[in-house]
Write a protein that binds this DNA or RNA. Sequence first.
DNA 1: GATAGGATCTCCAGGTACTGGAGGTTCAAG
DNA 2: CTTGAACCTCCAGTACCTGGAGATCCTATC
Lengths: 108, 108
Amino acid sequence: MSFASLSIGELARRTVCKVQTIRWYEAIGLLPAPARTTGGHRVYGAEHLRRLDFVRHAREFGFPLEAIRALLALADHPDNPSCEVAHAIASARLAEVEAKLKRLEALR
Amino acid sequence: MSFASLSIGELARRTVCKVQTIRWYEAIGLLPAPARTTGGHRVYGAEHLRRLDFVRHAREFGFPLEAIRALLALADHPDNPSCEVAHAIASARLAEVEAKLKRLEALR
DNA sequence: GATAGGATCTCCAGGTACTGGAGGTTCAAG
DNA sequence: CTTGAACCTCCAGTACCTGGAGATCCTATC
């Protein structure tokens, strides 16, 4: 990785996500609260970047936040047999998205 | 066409759009108010179906309603030289969607 | 023609996922 | 040590629906 720590602004730039949205994800428990500087500024690490990237991509897929929360919970327990379930869910959604895209392209 | 007129429920089925959403589109002026039966039920025709189909597809593309409203306004004036503008907007958006899809598929 | 039950009506509250702004504080470059 | 961008909290507002209550209408069947 090319960084030791990120400010919220840098994280926002790297994930194409607004600063307020990051704070909101934290408020609703989708992102863990990061460390803070003595002054109170948020300090993020590589794991936050990975997690937020996941959230953003899942949102682009059309997953509601509750579904993303569930997927993240599964991912947090790698010894979990329901990883297959998660994969199945994601694949199903991908199929939906692809079907939709086909319809859209057919329209043009 | 295979119908003379549609109830709101039939229109909803054909456009995969909830009944309430149709009424809401009418309330905000995205769909013209349809004729009514003497009892007050809405009666739709082929043009409504076409228009709502357009709205739904545009929504799937990710257009905000205001953009759709503008595109519909352009479509309502076929003698308008800005049809090219509309086409350009739509193409740009399509490109965005395709780029997004590529990123998403790369992730899998 | 009576009736039953499914579809529709209006109105309004609630939900999701942000987004923007006010008013104040912190940080880093010079 | 100053200055200006970036950050902080809190809260109100937006976009786009979604669901429910309570009443009315429509149509198929008896």
